[in-house]
Design a protein around this nucleic acid. Sequence first.
DNA 1: CAACATCCATACCGGTCGGTATCTTTAGAA
DNA 2: TTCTAAAGATACCGACCGGTATGGATGTTG
Lengths: 210, 210
Amino acid sequence: MSQSTTQHHHDPITDQNREKILQAAASEIHRCGFQAASIANILADTGLTKGALYHHFPSKQQLGLAVVDEVIHASLEQRMFAPLRTADNPVDTLLDYMQFRGEAMTDEAIKLGCPLNNLTQEMSPLDDDFKGHLNQILQMWQSVIEQALIKGQAQGQIRPDVDCSAAALFIVSAWEGCWGMAKNRQSVEVFQLCLSQLRNYVLNLGPGHA
Amino acid sequence: MSQSTTQHHHDPITDQNREKILQAAASEIHRCGFQAASIANILADTGLTKGALYHHFPSKQQLGLAVVDEVIHASLEQRMFAPLRTADNPVDTLLDYMQFRGEAMTDEAIKLGCPLNNLTQEMSPLDDDFKGHLNQILQMWQSVIEQALIKGQAQGQIRPDVDCSAAALFIVSAWEGCWGMAKNRQSVEVFQLCLSQLRNYVLNLGPGHA
DNA sequence: CAACATCCATACCGGTCGGTATCTTTAGAA
DNA sequence: TTCTAAAGATACCGACCGGTATGGATGTTG
């Protein structure tokens, strides 16, 4: 695979058109959802045609799954999971990240909603492949937060009696719920207000809040 | 309008076919979402044809809005809003209702998700009419819970420093979030576990948890 | 050069969609 | 009975969908 840069087969590094299609698909899916996402619109954004798309992806479903893995999962991994894993003080890192996400949120992003949650709500009941790939991301997210809370317990920031697994499950759930509520209201203030309540929940996991 | 039972025009009481279409549409939308809901499938369920549907509803959008108002809103009003409004002890009523919903939840309902949340996530960015009608339900829900918390403050069950509006916003958000998470996992146990964490949040609004 | 695989553009297909025009049937009112 | 309008059935339309078959570039290998 990495024997030579002039290899005969599929070289993912220089595959620019595939990446263009992937990004356009991610944008279209984010706007319209997967089922309503139009192949024609995606191609219009890229300037390419169906020949290019169906050369790189065997079907619309596989394109969607590639968006899930290579765009959504990759973005969360880089922006959230990795920092939480390597943080010395993961609980503060989590709280800071929630604060940051609230402040950096834009009207457009609120209007369209969380890409992960959108696809989860739409596709989980319809397609087991989507459900599996999305589930993997959500499980990873929950796991990262659970480990952060466990590390917080070792550091005395989280009470020892807290069920870190259940708390992590709830944090992820409520986080997506905040996105969803703000999406309907189309208000970043609602998102910030809602997320600050979630911050309160996390703070209440600390000592002195028995 | 109510002058006579033998009136010449549209009598909503004896309009059975309209109700059949409405229920079939609610079911189809619940399964597939609004955009993917097929008029043909709805009519196949009822045994009627397009002539009947487009006699009672001017468009698919208006049919969808009727489902929102006359099925989803009406159901929540009857099963949740009204009991909370008239309860002597609305905080306990809320906690009991959360418990009840968790225990009475079925695999099928978890798989399909919350009808209100499904439509909210799908349609809010796409259609202002849907957004408005759904927003009205969510605002009502939040308001009912906020009033319950305020009444709880008067009864000493909720700390006086609690921001009941923000807390109600978060409760509704997290509630839908729990449903969404369980929808991906397709597990009633996840729903119950998640909702029990939300119960903990509400309990932490009480005295002795400063 | 010739052979070949990659990459992508074009034209086209069957199927489904929401919606409409037209007609028949039904039923209440005079 | 006769008139009238609601109620609903049928056939049909244009638009869009995802997918495919084909052929033409392009560039690498023998």
